[in-house]
C-alpha cells in the first residue's frame, strides 16, 4: 500500500468545536488514480491540506501512512521529500523569486533526500527543458517569478510542471480544475496522463466530472460531512452527474440516524 488513511479525524487548528474530517478511510496502491468528489464543505480541501502537512489543521484521531511510514509525524517539507506532491487549488505567488531558482532549489532538496548529487544551473536547465517539452509548456516558464502575473490557467499549468520536475510518488490535485477553461483543463489532464506510471499514484480532488472524463480515474469516492460515503469505479462519475449527490446524502443521513 502506498497511502493508507485510517479513521482520520481533523479540524481547523484554532477551532476545536469544528471537526471537518470525521473518520475518513482511504487506501491507495501504487499506480492507482483515485478521484474524490463531493459537495462544498464536505472536507475535500481539508483532506488535501492534512495529507500535505499544512499546519492550519490539526489531526485529532486516526493514522496516515506512506509506504508504511507515519506521515503525520513529518513536516510538510519532509513529506514532499518523501514523494508527496500537492497541486494547489490556488498556487501561491512569490514575487521576485524566479521559477527557475525556486524549482532548482526544490529539485535539489528532493535529490538530496534520495542521496543524489545536486544539479547545477546547466544540468537543471537541460532537465527542466525535457519536462517542458514533455508537457508542451511555454519555453519562458522558468524565467518568470513564481506564479506572479500568471493567469489562473498558467498557475495550474506551472504546478503540473513542478509535479513533473519533482517526480513524486503520490500526487494530490486539490481542485486543480477550479476556474479553468476547457483548454487549460486539457493541459492539466494531459499533464497528469503523461505522468501516470505503475509506481505513481494520484488523488484528484474535484467538484466536476469534466476533468475526470479526461483523466479516467480507477476509483471514485464521494466525500460528505468528513467521511467517504460511497466508493466505486469510473461509472460513479456519470451516476453522480445524472442524479447529483442528494440521493447519496439522504441515504447516508438515514443510516446515521438509524445508528
Amino acid at each position: 500500500m502506498l497511502l493508507s488513511v485510517e479513521n482520520l479525524h481533523a479540524q481547523v487548528a484554532d477551532e476545536p468545536e469544528k471537526a471537518i474530517l470525521k473518520g475518513l478511510n482511504l487506501n491507495v496502491k501504487p499506480g492507482e488514480v483515485h478521484a474524490i468528489m463531493g459537495p462544498n464543505g464536505a472536507g475535500k480541501s481539508t483532506l488535501s491540506s492534512v495529507l500535505a502537512g499544512r499546519e492550519d489543521y490539526e489531526v485529532t484521531a486516526g493514522t496516515v501512512s506512506l509506504s508504511g511510514e507515519d506521515l503525520l509525524e513529518l513536516s510538510a517539507e519532509e513529506r514532499a521529500r518523501k514523494g508527496v506532491f500537492l497541486a494547489f487549488q490556488y498556487p501561491v505567488e512569490i514575487p521576485g523569486v524566479s521559477n527557475k531558482l525556486f524549482m532548482q532549489t526544490a529539485v535539489n532538496a528532493i535529490r538530496d533526500e534520495q542521496g543524489l548529487p545536486a544539479l547545477d544551473m546547466f544540468d537543471f536547465d537541460t532537465y527542466a527543458q525535457s519536462k517542458i517539452d514533455l508537457l508542451k509548456m511555454p519555453k519562458n516558464l522558468l524565467d518568470r517569478s513564481v506564479n506572479v502575473g500568471f493567469s489562473g490557467g498558467e498557475k495550474k499549468r506551472n504546478d503540473i510542471f513542478q509535479m513533473a520536475l519533482l517526480e513524486p510518488k503520490l500526487c494530490i490535485l486539490d481542485e486543480t480544475d477550479s476556474g479553468l477553461d476547457i483548454d487549460a483543463m486539457k493541459v492539466v489532464a494531459n499533464g497528469v496522463n503523461s505522468l501516470r506510471s505503475s509506481d505513481r499514484s494520484f488523488i484528484v480532488v474535484t467538484h466536476y466530472q469534466r476533468l475526470l472524463d479526461y483523466i479516467k480515474p480507477d476509483f471514485v469516492h464521494v466525500l460528505f460531512d468528513g467521511q467517504i460515503i460511497q466508493s466505486g469505479g469510473f461509472e460513479l462519475v456519470h451516476e453522480l452527474e445524472e442524479k447529483g449527490y442528494d440521493d447519496l446524502i439522504q441515504a447516508h443521513q438515514q443510516q446515521q440516524t438509524q445508528k
Partner: peptide, 19 residues
C-alpha cells in the same frame, strides 16, 4: 508562501531566505 515552498520540499529556513 512558506507552505507553498515547503510543499515542494524546500526547507523552511531556505524558503525564508529565498523569500
Amino acid at each position: 508562501q512558506l507552505f507553498y515552498a515547503q510543499a515542494r520540499g524546500i526547507r523552511r529556513t531556505d524558503a525564508m531566505q529565498l523569500i
